[in-house]
Design a protein around this nucleic acid. Structure first.
Lengths: 205, 205
DNA sequence: TTATTTATACAGACTAGATGGTACAAATAT
DNA sequence: ATATTTGTACCATCTAGTCTGTATAAATAA
Protein backbone atom coordinates (compact mmCIF):
# COMPACT_ATOMS: atom_id res chain seq x y z
CA UNK A 1 0.00 0.00 0.00
CA UNK A 2 1.45 3.32 -1.04
CA UNK A 3 5.03 3.83 -1.96
CA UNK A 4 8.02 3.08 0.23
CA UNK A 5 9.00 6.08 2.33
CA UNK A 6 12.14 4.77 3.93
CA UNK A 7 14.55 6.12 1.28
CA UNK A 8 13.10 9.58 1.83
CA UNK A 9 13.28 9.25 5.57
CA UNK A 10 16.86 8.06 5.39
CA UNK A 11 17.86 10.88 3.08
CA UNK A 12 16.41 13.36 5.55
CA UNK A 13 18.26 11.76 8.45
CA UNK A 14 21.59 11.55 6.65
CA UNK A 15 21.55 15.10 5.32
CA UNK A 16 20.23 16.51 8.57
CA UNK A 17 23.03 14.92 10.53
CA UNK A 18 25.63 16.43 8.24
CA UNK A 19 23.94 19.82 8.36
CA UNK A 20 23.56 19.82 12.14
CA UNK A 21 27.25 19.05 12.55
CA UNK A 22 28.08 22.05 10.36
CA UNK A 23 25.42 24.56 11.39
CA UNK A 24 24.20 23.41 14.76
CA UNK A 25 20.64 22.26 15.22
CA UNK A 26 18.95 25.63 15.42
CA UNK A 27 21.14 26.86 12.59
CA UNK A 28 19.73 24.09 10.42
CA UNK A 29 16.42 25.31 9.04
CA UNK A 30 13.94 22.88 7.60
CA UNK A 31 14.05 24.79 4.33
CA UNK A 32 17.79 24.09 4.19
CA UNK A 33 17.19 20.40 4.72
CA UNK A 34 14.60 20.44 1.93
CA UNK A 35 17.03 22.19 -0.38
CA UNK A 36 19.77 19.66 0.36
CA UNK A 37 17.59 16.61 -0.01
CA UNK A 38 15.41 17.86 -2.85
CA UNK A 39 12.40 16.90 -0.76
CA UNK A 40 9.37 19.04 -0.15
CA UNK A 41 7.82 20.34 3.00
CA UNK A 42 4.92 17.98 2.82
CA UNK A 43 7.21 14.99 2.68
CA UNK A 44 9.33 16.26 5.54
CA UNK A 45 6.45 16.81 7.92
CA UNK A 46 4.94 13.54 6.92
CA UNK A 47 7.99 11.76 8.31
CA UNK A 48 8.71 14.08 11.26
CA UNK A 49 5.82 15.76 13.00
CA UNK A 50 8.00 18.56 14.35
CA UNK A 51 11.61 19.65 14.13
CA UNK A 52 12.17 18.35 17.64
CA UNK A 53 10.98 14.91 16.58
CA UNK A 54 13.71 15.02 13.97
CA UNK A 55 16.19 15.98 16.69
CA UNK A 56 15.17 12.96 18.67
CA UNK A 57 15.32 10.59 15.70
CA UNK A 58 18.76 11.96 14.81
CA UNK A 59 20.25 11.45 18.24
CA UNK A 60 18.67 8.05 18.69
CA UNK A 61 20.05 6.83 15.40
CA UNK A 62 23.45 8.29 16.21
CA UNK A 63 23.51 6.73 19.67
CA UNK A 64 22.47 3.40 18.25
CA UNK A 65 25.35 3.42 15.78
CA UNK A 66 27.66 4.50 18.57
CA UNK A 67 26.68 1.65 20.83
CA UNK A 68 26.83 -0.77 17.91
CA UNK A 69 30.41 0.31 17.35
CA UNK A 70 31.18 -0.24 21.01
CA UNK A 71 29.69 -3.70 21.01
CA UNK A 72 31.38 -4.63 17.77
CA UNK A 73 34.75 -3.61 19.20
CA UNK A 74 34.06 -5.69 22.28
CA UNK A 75 33.29 -8.73 20.18
CA UNK A 76 36.31 -8.26 17.95
CA UNK A 77 38.59 -8.37 20.97
CA UNK A 78 36.84 -11.08 22.92
CA UNK A 79 39.35 -13.70 21.79
CA UNK A 80 42.03 -11.82 23.74
CA UNK A 81 40.20 -12.14 27.04
CA UNK A 82 43.00 -14.27 28.50
CA UNK A 83 45.30 -11.25 28.46
CA UNK A 84 43.12 -8.32 29.51
CA UNK A 85 45.83 -5.75 28.84
CA UNK A 86 46.35 -7.03 25.34
CA UNK A 87 42.63 -6.90 24.86
CA UNK A 88 42.39 -3.32 26.11
CA UNK A 89 45.18 -2.17 23.82
CA UNK A 90 43.64 -3.98 20.88
CA UNK A 91 40.30 -2.42 21.71
CA UNK A 92 41.82 1.04 21.46
CA UNK A 93 43.72 0.03 18.34
CA UNK A 94 40.46 -0.73 16.56
CA UNK A 95 39.42 2.89 16.99
CA UNK A 96 42.83 4.15 15.97
CA UNK A 97 42.49 2.18 12.74
CA UNK A 98 39.01 3.56 12.28
CA UNK A 99 40.29 7.13 12.54
CA UNK A 100 43.43 6.67 10.48
CA UNK A 101 43.76 7.88 6.93
CA UNK A 102 40.88 10.36 6.88
CA UNK A 103 41.34 13.04 4.26
CA UNK A 104 39.14 15.53 6.05
CA UNK A 105 38.27 15.84 9.73
CA UNK A 106 35.68 13.42 11.04
CA UNK A 107 32.43 15.39 10.84
CA UNK A 108 32.03 15.30 14.61
CA UNK A 109 29.82 13.95 17.33
CA UNK A 110 26.16 14.81 17.76
CA UNK A 111 26.55 14.40 21.53
CA UNK A 112 28.87 17.39 21.58
CA UNK A 113 26.76 19.33 19.13
CA UNK A 114 23.62 18.90 21.23
CA UNK A 115 25.50 19.45 24.48
CA UNK A 116 26.53 22.90 23.29
CA UNK A 117 22.93 23.94 22.65
CA UNK A 118 20.99 21.89 25.19
CA UNK A 119 18.25 24.48 25.58
CA UNK A 120 17.05 23.74 22.06
CA UNK A 121 15.81 20.31 23.03
CA UNK A 122 13.28 18.59 25.22
CA UNK A 123 14.99 16.82 28.11
CA UNK A 124 14.16 13.42 26.66
CA UNK A 125 16.10 14.33 23.51
CA UNK A 126 19.22 14.74 25.65
CA UNK A 127 18.73 11.50 27.52
CA UNK A 128 20.26 9.09 24.97
CA UNK A 129 23.46 11.10 25.19
CA UNK A 130 24.17 10.55 28.86
CA UNK A 131 22.88 7.04 28.52
CA UNK A 132 25.39 6.21 25.79
CA UNK A 133 28.30 7.93 27.52
CA UNK A 134 27.56 5.99 30.68
CA UNK A 135 27.54 2.77 28.72
CA UNK A 136 31.03 3.56 27.45
CA UNK A 137 32.05 4.25 31.04
CA UNK A 138 30.61 0.98 32.29
CA UNK A 139 32.19 -1.04 29.53
CA UNK A 140 35.63 0.47 29.96
CA UNK A 141 35.44 0.13 33.72
CA UNK A 142 34.93 -3.56 33.13
CA UNK A 143 37.82 -3.87 30.69
CA UNK A 144 40.09 -1.88 32.99
CA UNK A 145 39.09 -3.83 36.07
CA UNK A 146 40.00 -7.03 34.33
CA UNK A 147 43.40 -5.61 33.49
CA UNK A 148 43.88 -4.48 37.05
CA UNK A 149 43.32 -7.97 38.37
CA UNK A 150 46.22 -9.35 36.42
CA UNK A 151 48.56 -6.38 36.34
CA UNK A 152 49.99 -3.94 38.81
CA UNK A 153 49.22 -0.27 38.40
CA UNK A 154 52.19 2.05 38.36
CA UNK A 155 49.99 4.67 39.96
CA UNK A 156 46.79 4.27 41.90
CA UNK A 157 44.28 6.00 39.66
CA UNK A 158 40.52 6.06 39.73
CA UNK A 159 39.28 3.41 37.30
CA UNK A 160 36.10 5.28 36.53
CA UNK A 161 37.97 8.43 35.50
CA UNK A 162 40.36 6.33 33.52
CA UNK A 163 37.36 4.86 31.73
CA UNK A 164 35.93 8.30 30.98
CA UNK A 165 39.23 9.35 29.48
CA UNK A 166 38.37 7.27 26.43
CA UNK A 167 35.26 9.29 25.66
CA UNK A 168 36.92 12.52 26.72
CA UNK A 169 39.76 12.05 24.25
CA UNK A 170 37.35 11.23 21.46
CA UNK A 171 35.20 14.26 22.10
CA UNK A 172 38.14 16.59 22.59
CA UNK A 173 39.99 15.28 19.57
CA UNK A 174 36.93 15.84 17.37
CA UNK A 175 36.75 19.45 18.48
CA UNK A 176 40.43 20.17 17.99
CA UNK A 177 40.60 18.22 14.74
CA UNK A 178 37.74 20.24 13.33
CA UNK A 179 39.05 23.54 14.66
CA UNK A 180 42.53 23.04 13.18
CA UNK A 181 41.33 21.11 10.15
CA UNK A 182 43.76 18.29 10.91
CA UNK A 183 42.13 14.97 9.99
CA UNK A 184 44.70 12.67 11.60
CA UNK A 185 44.62 14.35 14.98
CA UNK A 186 42.00 12.00 16.39
CA UNK A 187 44.06 8.89 15.69
CA UNK A 188 47.13 10.57 17.17
CA UNK A 189 45.33 11.37 20.39
CA UNK A 190 44.03 7.83 20.70
CA UNK A 191 47.61 6.68 20.38
CA UNK A 192 48.45 8.77 23.42
CA UNK A 193 45.69 7.05 25.32
CA UNK A 194 47.09 3.70 24.28
CA UNK A 195 50.54 4.76 25.49
CA UNK A 196 49.11 5.80 28.82
CA UNK A 197 47.42 2.44 29.29
CA UNK A 198 50.66 0.76 28.25
CA UNK A 199 52.69 2.61 30.86
CA UNK A 200 50.14 2.39 33.62
CA UNK A 201 49.70 -1.36 33.72
CA UNK A 202 52.83 -3.42 34.38
CA UNK A 203 53.28 -7.14 34.99
CA UNK A 204 52.68 -8.15 38.61
CA UNK A 205 55.63 -8.05 41.04
CA UNK B 1 32.17 63.49 25.45
CA UNK B 2 29.03 61.49 26.01
CA UNK B 3 28.38 58.91 28.65
CA UNK B 4 30.34 55.77 29.27
CA UNK B 5 29.06 52.80 27.29
CA UNK B 6 31.49 50.18 28.49
CA UNK B 7 29.28 48.78 31.28
CA UNK B 8 26.56 48.21 28.71
CA UNK B 9 28.94 46.63 26.27
CA UNK B 10 30.35 44.36 28.94
CA UNK B 11 26.92 43.30 30.09
CA UNK B 12 26.07 42.33 26.52
CA UNK B 13 29.29 40.36 26.13
CA UNK B 14 28.95 38.52 29.44
CA UNK B 15 25.31 37.54 28.98
CA UNK B 16 25.81 36.64 25.33
CA UNK B 17 28.65 34.32 26.19
CA UNK B 18 26.53 32.50 28.74
CA UNK B 19 23.60 32.30 26.34
CA UNK B 20 25.70 31.08 23.41
CA UNK B 21 27.13 28.29 25.57
CA UNK B 22 23.58 27.18 26.43
CA UNK B 23 21.75 27.77 23.15
CA UNK B 24 24.41 27.91 20.51
CA UNK B 25 25.05 31.08 18.56
CA UNK B 26 22.19 30.83 16.12
CA UNK B 27 19.92 29.70 18.92
CA UNK B 28 20.70 32.92 20.75
CA UNK B 29 18.40 35.60 19.40
CA UNK B 30 19.16 39.25 19.91
CA UNK B 31 15.79 39.68 21.60
CA UNK B 32 16.83 37.05 24.13
CA UNK B 33 20.04 38.94 24.84
CA UNK B 34 18.05 42.14 25.32
CA UNK B 35 15.69 40.37 27.70
CA UNK B 36 18.59 38.96 29.73
CA UNK B 37 20.54 42.20 29.93
CA UNK B 38 17.61 44.56 30.28
CA UNK B 39 19.08 46.58 27.43
CA UNK B 40 17.22 47.80 24.38
CA UNK B 41 17.67 47.16 20.72
CA UNK B 42 19.04 50.58 19.96
CA UNK B 43 21.71 50.13 22.56
CA UNK B 44 22.63 46.72 21.28
CA UNK B 45 23.09 47.81 17.69
CA UNK B 46 24.95 50.88 18.79
CA UNK B 47 27.63 48.62 20.28
CA UNK B 48 27.51 45.84 17.69
CA UNK B 49 26.70 46.72 14.11
CA UNK B 50 25.56 43.17 13.32
CA UNK B 51 25.13 39.89 15.13
CA UNK B 52 28.25 38.59 13.46
CA UNK B 53 30.25 41.48 14.88
CA UNK B 54 29.08 40.31 18.30
CA UNK B 55 30.25 36.80 17.42
CA UNK B 56 33.65 38.16 16.60
CA UNK B 57 33.88 40.28 19.74
CA UNK B 58 32.80 37.30 21.83
CA UNK B 59 35.40 34.95 20.46
CA UNK B 60 38.14 37.56 20.58
CA UNK B 61 37.43 38.33 24.19
CA UNK B 62 37.25 34.64 25.03
CA UNK B 63 40.51 33.89 23.23
CA UNK B 64 42.20 36.79 24.96
CA UNK B 65 41.17 35.49 28.38
CA UNK B 66 42.27 32.03 27.34
CA UNK B 67 45.72 33.18 26.29
CA UNK B 68 45.97 35.32 29.41
CA UNK B 69 45.34 32.22 31.48
CA UNK B 70 48.01 30.36 29.56
CA UNK B 71 50.55 33.11 30.09
CA UNK B 72 49.66 33.48 33.72
CA UNK B 73 50.20 29.77 34.28
CA UNK B 74 53.54 30.02 32.54
CA UNK B 75 54.61 32.85 34.79
CA UNK B 76 53.40 31.13 37.94
CA UNK B 77 55.61 28.14 37.18
CA UNK B 78 58.63 29.98 35.89
CA UNK B 79 60.46 29.61 39.21
CA UNK B 80 60.52 25.85 38.62
CA UNK B 81 62.41 26.12 35.36
CA UNK B 82 65.40 24.26 36.80
CA UNK B 83 63.32 21.08 36.96
CA UNK B 84 61.25 21.08 33.77
CA UNK B 85 59.22 18.04 34.77
CA UNK B 86 58.32 19.60 38.07
CA UNK B 87 57.34 22.71 36.18
CA UNK B 88 55.17 20.79 33.73
CA UNK B 89 53.36 18.97 36.52
CA UNK B 90 52.86 22.18 38.43
CA UNK B 91 51.57 23.81 35.26
CA UNK B 92 48.89 21.16 34.94
CA UNK B 93 48.19 21.35 38.65
CA UNK B 94 47.24 25.00 38.32
CA UNK B 95 44.44 24.03 35.97
CA UNK B 96 43.38 21.16 38.16
CA UNK B 97 43.03 23.61 41.04
CA UNK B 98 41.10 25.95 38.78
CA UNK B 99 38.61 23.22 37.91
CA UNK B 100 38.28 21.74 41.39
CA UNK B 101 35.30 22.36 43.62
CA UNK B 102 32.86 23.55 40.97
CA UNK B 103 29.26 23.04 42.03
CA UNK B 104 27.98 22.96 38.47
CA UNK B 105 29.75 22.03 35.24
CA UNK B 106 32.03 24.65 33.79
CA UNK B 107 29.84 26.46 31.24
CA UNK B 108 32.04 25.29 28.38
CA UNK B 109 34.35 26.59 25.71
CA UNK B 110 33.35 28.95 22.92
CA UNK B 111 35.91 27.29 20.65
CA UNK B 112 33.92 24.09 20.76
CA UNK B 113 30.61 25.90 20.49
CA UNK B 114 31.68 27.74 17.36
CA UNK B 115 33.41 24.69 15.93
CA UNK B 116 30.12 22.82 16.00
CA UNK B 117 28.36 25.50 13.95
CA UNK B 118 31.16 26.93 11.84
CA UNK B 119 28.89 27.81 8.92
CA UNK B 120 27.25 30.51 11.02
CA UNK B 121 30.35 32.65 10.99
CA UNK B 122 32.61 34.55 8.63
CA UNK B 123 35.95 32.78 8.30
CA UNK B 124 37.71 35.54 10.20
CA UNK B 125 35.48 34.87 13.19
CA UNK B 126 36.88 31.34 13.33
CA UNK B 127 40.48 32.42 13.00
CA UNK B 128 41.16 33.30 16.66
CA UNK B 129 40.19 29.76 17.57
CA UNK B 130 42.87 27.96 15.60
CA UNK B 131 45.28 30.70 16.49
CA UNK B 132 44.74 30.17 20.22
CA UNK B 133 44.82 26.38 20.02
CA UNK B 134 48.09 26.57 18.11
CA UNK B 135 49.51 28.82 20.78
CA UNK B 136 48.72 26.19 23.40
CA UNK B 137 50.39 23.63 21.20
CA UNK B 138 53.51 25.75 20.77
CA UNK B 139 53.76 26.50 24.46
CA UNK B 140 53.34 22.90 25.54
CA UNK B 141 55.76 21.69 22.92
CA UNK B 142 58.29 24.03 24.54
CA UNK B 143 57.56 22.83 28.06
CA UNK B 144 57.66 19.20 26.97
CA UNK B 145 60.86 19.64 24.99
CA UNK B 146 62.54 21.07 28.04
CA UNK B 147 61.46 18.04 30.03
CA UNK B 148 62.69 15.72 27.35
CA UNK B 149 66.17 17.20 27.50
CA UNK B 150 66.59 16.31 31.13
CA UNK B 151 64.53 13.13 31.34
CA UNK B 152 64.24 9.90 29.46
CA UNK B 153 60.96 9.04 27.82
CA UNK B 154 59.54 5.64 28.65
CA UNK B 155 58.06 5.56 25.17
CA UNK B 156 59.01 7.53 22.11
CA UNK B 157 55.91 9.65 21.53
CA UNK B 158 55.33 12.59 19.25
CA UNK B 159 55.83 15.75 21.32
CA UNK B 160 53.39 17.75 19.26
CA UNK B 161 50.57 15.27 19.81
CA UNK B 162 51.48 15.09 23.44
CA UNK B 163 51.12 18.86 23.57
CA UNK B 164 47.71 18.76 21.87
CA UNK B 165 46.53 16.26 24.43
CA UNK B 166 46.28 19.09 26.92
CA UNK B 167 43.73 20.99 24.85
CA UNK B 168 42.03 17.79 23.77
CA UNK B 169 41.42 16.73 27.35
CA UNK B 170 40.07 20.14 28.26
CA UNK B 171 37.67 20.23 25.34
CA UNK B 172 36.56 16.65 25.77
CA UNK B 173 36.14 16.98 29.50
CA UNK B 174 33.95 20.04 29.05
CA UNK B 175 31.69 18.12 26.71
CA UNK B 176 31.40 15.05 28.91
CA UNK B 177 31.09 17.08 32.09
CA UNK B 178 28.20 19.04 30.61
CA UNK B 179 26.56 15.96 29.11
CA UNK B 180 26.64 14.01 32.37
CA UNK B 181 26.23 17.04 34.60
CA UNK B 182 29.31 16.06 36.62
CA UNK B 183 31.16 19.21 37.63
CA UNK B 184 34.35 17.58 38.93
CA UNK B 185 34.96 15.51 35.81
CA UNK B 186 37.24 18.11 34.24
CA UNK B 187 39.63 18.15 37.18
CA UNK B 188 39.64 14.35 37.24
CA UNK B 189 40.58 14.12 33.61
CA UNK B 190 43.38 16.64 34.02
CA UNK B 191 44.69 14.44 36.81
CA UNK B 192 44.90 11.58 34.32
CA UNK B 193 46.94 13.81 32.06
CA UNK B 194 49.23 14.63 34.95
CA UNK B 195 49.64 10.91 35.68
CA UNK B 196 50.53 10.24 32.08
CA UNK B 197 53.22 12.92 32.11
CA UNK B 198 54.45 11.52 35.39
CA UNK B 199 54.84 8.00 34.00
CA UNK B 200 56.20 9.03 30.65
CA UNK B 201 59.18 11.02 31.83
CA UNK B 202 61.67 9.20 34.04
CA UNK B 203 65.09 10.25 35.37
CA UNK B 204 67.91 9.73 32.89
CA UNK B 205 69.70 6.34 32.89
C1' DT C 1 -8.62 -9.16 -15.85
C1' DT C 2 -9.87 -4.84 -14.77
C1' DA C 3 -12.28 -1.18 -12.02
C1' DT C 4 -12.41 0.54 -7.44
C1' DT C 5 -11.16 1.24 -2.88
C1' DT C 6 -7.79 2.19 0.73
C1' DA C 7 -3.57 3.41 3.07
C1' DT C 8 0.51 5.57 2.42
C1' DA C 9 3.71 9.06 0.59
C1' DC C 10 4.51 13.41 -1.42
C1' DA C 11 3.71 18.36 -3.39
C1' DG C 12 3.43 23.12 -2.63
C1' DA C 13 0.77 27.33 -1.33
C1' DC C 14 -0.15 29.59 2.90
C1' DT C 15 0.12 31.57 7.77
C1' DA C 16 1.42 33.49 12.20
C1' DG C 17 5.05 34.63 14.68
C1' DA C 18 10.10 35.24 15.22
C1' DT C 19 14.39 37.22 13.53
C1' DG C 20 18.01 40.44 12.29
C1' DG C 21 18.30 44.90 11.24
C1' DT C 22 16.82 50.20 10.50
C1' DA C 23 15.22 54.89 11.57
C1' DC C 24 15.03 58.38 14.39
C1' DA C 25 13.54 60.82 18.43
C1' DA C 26 14.67 61.37 23.33
C1' DA C 27 17.71 61.25 27.19
C1' DT C 28 22.21 61.71 29.36
C1' DA C 29 26.84 63.09 30.63
C1' DT C 30 30.60 66.14 29.91
C1' DA D 1 26.12 72.38 23.53
C1' DT D 2 26.96 68.29 21.58
C1' DA D 3 28.89 63.78 21.19
C1' DT D 4 27.32 59.76 22.80
C1' DT D 5 24.00 56.46 24.50
C1' DT D 6 19.32 54.71 24.82
C1' DG D 7 14.12 53.72 23.69
C1' DT D 8 10.83 52.21 20.57
C1' DA D 9 8.27 51.71 16.49
C1' DC D 10 8.87 49.58 12.24
C1' DC D 11 10.25 46.48 8.18
C1' DA D 12 11.60 42.64 5.13
C1' DT D 13 12.76 38.14 5.49
C1' DC D 14 12.95 33.70 7.49
C1' DT D 15 10.98 30.19 10.44
C1' DA D 16 8.34 26.14 11.88
C1' DG D 17 4.29 24.31 11.03
C1' DT D 18 -0.63 23.72 8.55
C1' DC D 19 -3.69 22.68 4.95
C1' DT D 20 -5.57 20.82 0.87
C1' DG D 21 -4.86 18.24 -2.74
C1' DT D 22 -2.41 14.69 -5.66
C1' DA D 23 0.32 10.59 -6.83
C1' DT D 24 1.56 5.76 -5.89
C1' DA D 25 0.88 1.06 -5.08
C1' DA D 26 -1.12 -2.70 -3.13
C1' DA D 27 -5.63 -5.03 -1.78
C1' DT D 28 -10.21 -6.11 -3.08
C1' DA D 29 -14.15 -7.13 -5.86
C1' DA D 30 -16.77 -7.67 -10.35
Amino acid sequence: MGRDGTPTRNKILAQSRALVLQNGFSGTSIDLILERTGITKGAFFYHFKTKNVLAQALIEEFAKEDIDTLESALEQTEHLKTDPKERLLQFVQLFIDMMTGLTEPYPGCLYASYTYEPNQFDPKVMEPISSAILQWRTTLVRLLSEVRQEYDMQQEVDISSLADLFTVIFEGAYVVSKALNEPDLVAQQLRQLSNYYELLFVPKQ
